[in-house]
Design a protein around this nucleic acid. Structure first.
Lengths: 168, 168
DNA sequence: TCAAACTTTCAATACTTATTGAAAGTTTTA
DNA sequence: TAAAACTTTCAATAAGTATTGAAAGTTTGA
């Protein structure tokens, strides 16, 4: 396989991965492109390499910055902005986990809490069973969430910090 | 909040969760419905409760069975099939992780391996850097994958089994 | 202060994915 | 073996998402 071909395949692959996990395909492709670029790239370069429009490139670069996966960079003598991806993959994973927790899991937990509030006693036994079940789910999601948080913050924790070092 | 309202909200919520994670919304809703049903349900009942067509209900029930999240059940004196969801949430999480590993992560690793094969030496230094980067990503994804496998099989592992028991 | 360089926005449009429903297929019972 | 009960399939269509590109907005340098 040649370099150019490999590069393209990698970008496609990362894009597919994104789709599978609920992330906009183009956003994942832009991320892939920046992940394998040694230099930071301009919007123009991203448009060119991926064959996408200015609006699309701009939008997805913003989104990546919003996710803390890409940094804006200014070069002296250049008026336009350049973009560079976070290169440390462990950082990337932590930030994705952090953002998804914030955007999805926390609201989910709040909603479950609300739903579990239905008054089981005033209603049917079916309703009571439902309320219990929702509380159970709530507890479970809460625990999964804490586990993820523990992993994200593993470096700060002497015990998991050790485990992490062994695995890295 | 009343029972009926709570139930509907829960189903919507689980559906949204599914969308966020690359799972068909209706499939997640069917799963939600079965998760909170004490009795197993027929296709008819699923259609009725969610207001979806026969084809859609059938398709998503099959898919859930394929994911090992729902069981087919036959009741005596009844000709039609009934469906029941796995109730143990830890089992649910493990099976989702198992399926996604099998369907997405394993192929991803194979593809990365292929891409990393480009011959860096015969090409530019840029190509060499690319090959190294892909190998690095491959290693990282591989480690994440092993970590997930370890968690899935935690019960069989004395060390992580202990940690799991504490967390549960 | 102006205009060139650059970035952002967003309505129109294209693309992707999910859903319907009726027809075809299968199984069961009598 | 026939027909009723049930399940599956799939082409047509609807619904949901992403992309374009041109216009509007902003910043910079002379």
């Amino acid at each position: 396989m040649q370099f150019k071909e490999g590069k393209e395949q990698f970008i496609q692959l990362w894009g597919t991965l994104g789709s599978d996990w609920g992330i906009n395909r183009t956003m994942a492709q832009v991320h892939a492109l920046l992940l394998i670029s040694r230099e930071s790239l301009s919007t123009e370069q991203v448009m060119e390499e991926l064959g996408i429009s200015r609006g699309n490139a701009n939008m997805n670069l913003r989104e990546l910055i919003d996710w803390n996966l890409v940094y804006r960079e200014l070069k002296k003598g250049e008026r336009k902005e350049f973009f560079r991806a976070e290169q440390d993959l462990w950082e990337v994973a932590k930030r994705v986990a952090h953002e998804r927790r914030r955007r999805e899991i926390q609201p989910l937990l709040n909603n479950l809490k609300e739903i579990a509030k239905i008054d089981g006693k005033k209603d049917s036994p079916e309703a009571e069973a439902f309320a219990d079940r929702v509380k159970e789910i709530q507890r479970f999601v809460g625990k999964l969430d804490s586990a993820v948080e523990t992993v994200i913050k593993a470096e700060e924790n002497w015990f998991f910090g050790r485990i992490l070092k062994i695995m890295k």
